[in-house]
Amino acid sequence: MADNEDVLARRVEEACLNGWPALKTIWLDGWLLRFSHGHTRRANSISLLWPGTRQPSEQISSAEAFYSHHGLPTIFRLSSVSSQDIGSALDEAGYGPGEDETCVLYRDLDAAPSQGERGAAFVRPNLDDAWFGAHARLQKFSAATAAHARALFGAVALPTGYAMSPASDGSPAALAFGAVHDGIVCINAVATDPTFRRQGHAHNAVSALLAWARDDQGAKGACLPVVAGNDAGRSLYRSLAFSTEISRYSYRRKVA
């Protein structure tokens, strides 16, 4: 990776971590341990931000003790951005193979898409009951999970945008969430009500977020994660000009 690409990849990594934070964090010799009552792997896993001074096996054991204390499985989020390779140490410690390889896509915002032609997607700066209620319903959250999810959204310390594309009857057809860090908006929580799929609503919601980030927040770039095997999602994001794959990551968890 060229130097300028490496710098951008690390900026995007920061935007992703800050745009989808954890409720509690621990720094452990270059590793970031994140805890959020088990709600989403990204907010409950370990990111290797720089190599520490300990042997990987010792570091892994120390990290496992923290997750055991919180009653959570130990999960590593292994990114191509990391300069430390601990694959062999994880093999020896009894971790399973990689799960859900994910692409982090990037685009600049010199020509952010318009909001589209189907309905008027809008963006609000604060989390409200209508947006979160639709999010919880589409994700089929239990009451406990909904409480953890709401707390996680509340933990975002960046400027935020909550986009909704309404159906003709005004009901939420598609949602998207964005947070702007250091000139980059990180897009998350893109979801469409199954009743309104293939009608352009997700495209409109994300487009509205991109325009909000560019015009209201001065963002110059945008990023988002998508599972590598999610063909529908990748097709949507290609249509929104997310043509650059900036990095990849996958998860490895301790096998019981």
Results as ranks from 00 to 15, higher is better:
H70W: 13
A9P: 04
S57M: 10
G170Y: 02
L209I: 02
I246R: 08
C16K: 02
I184Q: 06
L209H: 02
N44V: 04
F122K: 12
T40D: 09
A163V: 01
I26G: 08
L28P: 04
Y67H: 03
R118K: 11
F76P: 08
A211S: 15
F122D: 12
A146H: 03
E117R: 13
A22G: 15
R54T: 10
E92I: 12
G119E: 05
R214I: 02
I26M: 10
S47D: 12
A22M: 01
S83H: 11
W20K: 06
L78I: 14
G116D: 02
F122R: 14
V185S: 06
G119R: 05
Q199H: 11
A63T: 01
M164S: 13
C223P: 04
H37M: 06
K220A: 13
D85S: 12
T145A: 15
V81R: 11
G221M: 01
A219C: 05
K24E: 15
L72M: 12
E92N: 12
D110T: 13
P97S: 14
A179R: 07
T102K: 05
D231E: 15
A151N: 05
I86E: 06
E101F: 08
G96Q: 04
A189Y: 12
T195H: 13
A136M: 07
Y251R: 02
S239W: 00
P166A: 04
P56N: 02
V123Q: 04
W31F: 07
G38A: 03
S114C: 10
S247H: 12
A191H: 12
P225C: 10
W131Y: 12
L138K: 01
G52F: 00
S243A: 14
L23I: 11
D128P: 08
A89S: 14
W31S: 15
I26Y: 13
A112H: 04
D3M: 13
L8I: 11
F132E: 05
I46G: 13
Y249V: 01
F242E: 05
A120H: 14
S247D: 07
Y106D: 10
Y251M: 06
D85A: 09
A89Q: 00
Y237C: 08
P56Y: 02
A9N: 06
R42I: 03
A146K: 05
L48M: 14
S83K: 14
